[in-house]
């Protein structure tokens, strides 16, 4: 099994830092969960800029292109799943596909992704007027892409079984004024929902009973995270116009909560696999019941029944294997993440 997770968001929102911190944290493992790159060089490629960040106290240079790497997620050294991690330059969102190769690839990646992680700067969301925060986080552009490639096709019945896990990572949460941190970030969540209302509204509508889609197909959640930890970065310049606020690192970074959004994305996509298997099992059950009810058919189709039983057994075994993995990955993350739709 291989999943594709695409990380994107506006320029300067913290995608690269988030990726570096996540891969650093998960390289040695958290709570038995660990990420392994497909080869040693790939890991080095991510660890080097993280080392430069920690020791040199300098933010990584802005991403200029697209980066895709393959990793394996392990639990107690047992493989859970392979996943493809795709990271983008923020500007790929705001450019028409015919003007940039990255933009064209981003469109394709979104279509192919099992899960997407949207990275947005919590400080911008909190401190700038909502309409400016929308533009600076590119939330409207993000909704536009998701709507075109994931929401609309499903509503039109083209990908009815599809769905996607949506995770909103609110970076730079350490720099937030206290009122946004109070009551477990209640104010921040409120403003983030306003800024990302396009996505929030879609998920909300889709969950209504009148929706043509099955309401559980779009698991979506958010979480504030910090790459540096509370009090370890200070605002150097406040943002104005196109310029975002800048920060100075004043102490060694200690990432906070960076792994939960990732585990939520992977855990829910594993759960989607289990969901499909459960539906297969239900279907097999129904077919068996129908066959069993007719004695003559049962005699005539004994072989088919045997095959169905074998298939059902196999599905059940796969589900049994999957269950502890889902528990390991999603169990903790789902207790930390907060719903996109309250």
């Amino acid at each position: 099994m291989s999943l594709k997770v695409t990380l994107f968001g506006g320029t300067g929102q913290g995608k690269t830092c988030y990726t570096l911190a996540l891969l650093y944290m998960m390289a040695t493992g958290i709570e038995g969960l660990r990420i392994e790159a497909e080869d040693a060089d790939t890991a080095t490629k991510y660890l080097n800029p993280w080392r430069d960040f920690v020791i040199g106290r300098k933010w990584p240079a802005p991403t200029m292109g697209r980066r895709e790497d393959v990793f394996t997620l392990l639990f107690d050294d047992q493989k859970i799943t392979d996943f493809r991690w795709v990271d983008y330059q923020g500007g790929a969102i705001n450019v028409p596909a015919d003007e940039s190769d990255e933009a064209a690839q981003l469109h394709a990646d979104i279509q192919e992704s099992n899960a997407i992680i949207i990275v947005a700067d919590a400080y911008t969301i909190a401190m700038r007027p909502a309409i400016e925060a929308e533009m600076l986080t590119s939330s409207t552009y993000i909704y536009n892409l998701l709507n075109n490639y994931k929401f609309k096709p499903n509503l039109a019945g083209e990908g009815i079984g599809g769905g996607i896990t949506i995770v909103l990572v609110l970076t730079k949460a350490d720099a937030l004024p206290e009122e946004y941190k109070a009551h477990n970030y209640e104010e921040l969540y409120k403003k983030a929902r306003q800024v990302f209302r396009g996505v929030v509204d879609f998920v909300e509508k889709e969950r209504r009973k009148t929706s043509s889609l099955r309401p559980w197909l779009y698991p979506s959640a958010m979480l504030p995270v910090s790459i540096v930890g509370d009090g370890r970065a200070q605002v150097a310049t406040e943002g104005e116009g196109y310029a975002l606020a800048s920060f100075n690192l004043v102490a060694a970074p200690e990432p906070v909560d960076v792994h939960y959004p990732f585990l939520y994305a992977i855990g829910n996509e594993l759960d989607r696999t289990a969901l499909v298997l459960e539906e297969q099992a239900d279907d097999l059950e129904q077919r068996l019941e129908k066959m069993s009810s007719n004695v003559l058919k049962r005699i005539l189709r004994g072989r088919s029944i045997k095959e169905l039983h074998a298939e059902r057994r196999q599905v059940a075994e796969t589900l049994k294997e999957l269950e502890p993995q889902i528990q390991a990955v999603a169990g903790v993350a789902n207790k930390k993440m907060r719903p996109l739709v309250p």
């Binding site: 504030p224 906070v256 207790k335 930390k336 907060r338």
Partner: peptide, 15 residues
């Protein structure tokens, strides 16, 4: 800092 864990009754549901 960081966000707090929520009680089991409030946790996010899987699909």
């Amino acid at each position: 800092g960081g966000a707090a864990f929520v009680p089991e009754s409030e946790r996010m549901l899987t699909m």
